[in-house]
């Protein structure tokens, strides 16, 4: 079983990093909202799901006639990422406006907001399953995965060194995630609104005394988390080539796990946690078989939290320099 692991080491490392990059992007949404509002936004998985459908709709509208490669593929992926990012970002802002803001205004408890999050999550899933998908794709009640234009998912081997092969889609996913992380880091540390987000995460009451408009900070936080989830959704569609109304559920739980693993509330923790989780899953599935993938991942989570309850990077957004 370990001979297998050595044989498969490089391919599973690449697989793990590209899977982990998607977890990391989605984890950012959980961790930022938690940092600012101390709320686990359980409907974030549906924001991701909405992103996959936005990307799919764009693909269908373009209607590829042949596989694309090179610059054209880069352009296509960028376009999908932009559309999915905007749609997911707007959905996240709308979600906050409808499901959380009224509760916050009335000073409701965090548990009430949590229930509201679960409700919003179920509502969005069922809205897609029963109304939007049948209407949109002209299908009866949707059960299985939706068809993705096949030309999009036909992949090209970019470069190979011996057994070490990098496929274009996996490379794009990793690069895309890194670019988004750098952009976010710059935004949070260099812009005025970014400083407002950090201040609110560290001490909301004092932030108001500095003239920070909390409502705007909260909207911006949901917007950014949503955009990240939308980009992740476009990359996911390219990497795995399928979506359905349920696509966010397990991925959302994994991304939330990644956020906790890295240290919730900590932006860099989301990256570390996501990549770690992706690698563990892939290595675990090579060693123990793919059926054990999730068991290995969550066992590691439990172990890490036993010894480092605050996650790998420990300190949260309050303490960390974002």
């Amino acid at each position: 079983m370990f001979g297998n692991f050595i044989d498969q080491f490089w391919p599973s490392t690449i697989d793990g990093l590209s899977l982990g990059a998607i977890y990391a992007l989605v984890a950012l949404g959980y961790t930022m909202v938690y940092g600012v509002l101390r709320l686990i936004n359980f409907a974030h998985s549906e924001i991701f799901m909405i992103g996959t459908f936005a990307a799919l709709a764009t693909l269908n509208a373009i209607g590829l006639s042949a596989p694309v490669g090179g610059l054209a593929l880069i352009g296509l992926v960028l376009m999908l990422a932009v559309v999915a990012g905007l749609v997911s970002g707007a959905s996240a802002v709308a979600l906050e406006f409808v499901a959380y803001r009224p509760l916050r205004r009335r000073g409701a408890s965090r548990l009430a907001a949590l229930i509201s999050a679960i409700g919003a999550s179920l509502f969005l899933q069922q809205l897609f399953a029963r109304v939007l998908i049948p209407w949109w794709f002209d299908l009866p009640k949707e059960k299985g995965a939706l068809p993705i234009p096949k030309h999009f998912t036909e992949t090209v081997d970019l470069l190979s060194i011996g057994d070490f092969i990098i496929r274009n889609d996996k490379l794009f996913v990793i690069l895309g995630a890194i670019v988004m992380m750098i952009a976010l880091d710059q935004f949070v540390n260099r812009t005025q609104l970014g400083r407002g987000i950090r201040a609110t995460a560290q001490d909301p009451e004092t932030a108001v005394l500095m003239g920070v408009n909390i409502d705007r900070v909260v909207s911006a936080t949901f917007m950014i988390g949503g955009v990240m989830a939308g980009v992740a959704a476009a990359l996911y569609l390219m990497r795995f080539g399928e979506t359905n109304y349920f696509v966010g559920f397990l991925l959302g739980i994994k991304a939330f796990t990644a956020a906790v693993l890295g240290g919730i509330g900590n932006l860099r923790g989301a990256l570390v946690g996501g990549l770690t989780l992706g690698l563990i899953e892939m290595y675990g599935s090579v060693i123990f078989g793919s059926a054990w993938q999730d068991v290995v991942a969550f066992s590691v989570l439990v172990l890490v939290l036993m010894f480092r309850p605050t996650g790998i990077l420990g300190e949260s957004l309050q303490q960390a320099r974002a």
Binding site: Q192, R195, R198, Q202, T206, M210, V212, L317, R321
Partner: peptide, 27 residues
């Protein structure tokens, strides 16, 4: 209206200069 709040309300993860810049956030 400027306020130095109860318990000081220093942003722990920001440097002294960043904290001071927060004071001019709205300006």
């Amino acid at each position: 209206i400027g306020q130095a709040p109860e318990g000081r309300g220093i942003f722990p993860g920001m440097t002294v200069t960043e904290n001071l810049h927060m004071g001019a956030y709205a300006r």
